Computed example of a mutant assay.
Amino acid sequence: MQVLVTGGAGYIGSHTVLSLLQSQYDVVVLDNLSNSSVESIKRVEHITGKSVTFIEGDVCDKAKLRQVFSDYTIESVIHFAALKAVGESAQIPLSYYQTNVHGSVCLLEVMQENKVNNFIFSSSATVYGEENQVPYVETMKLGTPSSPYGATKVMVERILADVALANAKFRGVSLRYFNPIGAHESGMIGEDPKGIPNNLLPYVAQVAVGKRDKLSIFGDDYPTQDGSCERDYLHVMDLAQGHVAALDWLNCHGDFTGVEAFNLGTGNGVSVFAIVNTFEQATDQRIPFEVSPRRAGDLAAFWANATKANQALNWQAKRSLQQMMIDTWRWQSNNPNGYLEQ
């Protein structure tokens, strides 16, 4: 069974490709390498002892997509390829709508042409917006997100619902998750953002390894326990295994049609200050920081109720916050320049 993973050379994508290979799936990766490296795929192959078919290309390129579906017997698609930074999306919204929404439409159109109906969408907890109360549950209506990034995820989820109404054979899963952190326990693959990291833990790790002078904490006056934002941090390997569990679920429920949403999370909100403290304790590295103004689009706190995924997918987050820190530091200290040659 060949699975197409778009954005499969990226952070979450590469860990999911690894998990798919370990679960005996054959994987084809499509990635434009805009915020990733093909080195991640080479290392996944090294860890697993299995080969991955890699194609450099963009999900907005329908000719390339048609070639992929012509050359390979794709039976399922896991769709990661997207721009993903909340703050950046407020600065360059058109790029986010182009890549995240138009790219998804192009992919779905080519899938439809080739009668491929199994689709797992890497969505986001931001689809719950500001109206819904935490902890978020899947029965809540899609909200109005506070950023263009979140808006693109809502749009794609609505598109999937409409596709399912129009195509009785369509089988979609939307995985809504929060803040993936950590790295594979080998220390060989991890998060390697190009340029200045937009996410918290890669920035913390780069401060620890000496690439950055200090961390900026955006706001300490939120209505939370310590004034900093609270998020549901999830180990990337737990998240990767959640995607495989969703694919297994689709394959075991041949009569299912439509779109089903699942939250993937720990069910616990952790503050930015707590992340910094836990990292320092777990790694013996000091992280100097300063408090900066709030960022546009940041909500005070959100976390998941993952009961549905626990029960239906037989999935749960198993790795501790301390493990997330240890694995992050192993990756960063072994690869101070990421996937660039040391």
Rank of each mutant, 00 (worst) to 15 (best):
M1I: 01
T6M: 13
G7D: 05
G7R: 10
A9F: 08
Y11F: 14
G13E: 04
L18W: 11
S19H: 07
L21K: 13
Q22V: 00
S23V: 00
Q24G: 09
Y25F: 15
V27T: 02
L30C: 05
S37V: 00
R43M: 11
E45I: 03
G49L: 07
G49V: 02
K50S: 12
K50G: 04
D58W: 14
C60W: 04
D61C: 08
Y72Q: 12
I78R: 15
H79I: 04
F80E: 11
A82L: 09
L83N: 13
K84W: 06
V86W: 10
G87T: 08
A90P: 02
I92E: 13
P93K: 14
N100W: 07
G103F: 09
L107Y: 04
F119M: 04
A125T: 02
Y128G: 01
G129I: 00
G129C: 02
E130P: 00
Q133H: 12
Y136M: 12
V137S: 07
T139D: 10
L142E: 02
G143Y: 01
S147L: 01
A164C: 14
L165R: 15
A168E: 13
K169I: 00
R171M: 06
F178W: 10
N179H: 15
N179Y: 14
P180D: 09
G182L: 12
S186Q: 04
G187D: 03
G195A: 11
I196G: 02
V204H: 08
V204P: 07
A205I: 00
Q206V: 01
A208N: 04
V209G: 03
V209T: 12
G210D: 07
G210E: 04
K211D: 05
L215M: 11
D220A: 13
D220C: 06
D221E: 09
Y222V: 01
P223V: 00
Q225P: 02
S228F: 08
G242K: 07
H243G: 06
A246E: 00
A246Y: 03
N251W: 02
H253V: 01
V259W: 06
E260R: 15
F262R: 06
L264N: 09
G267C: 09
G269V: 00
I275L: 15
T283W: 07
T283D: 04
I287Q: 12
P293S: 12
G297D: 03
G297C: 10
D298G: 05
K308A: 05
N310F: 11
L313C: 09
N314S: 07
Q316A: 14
Q316V: 03
T328Y: 09
E341C: 12
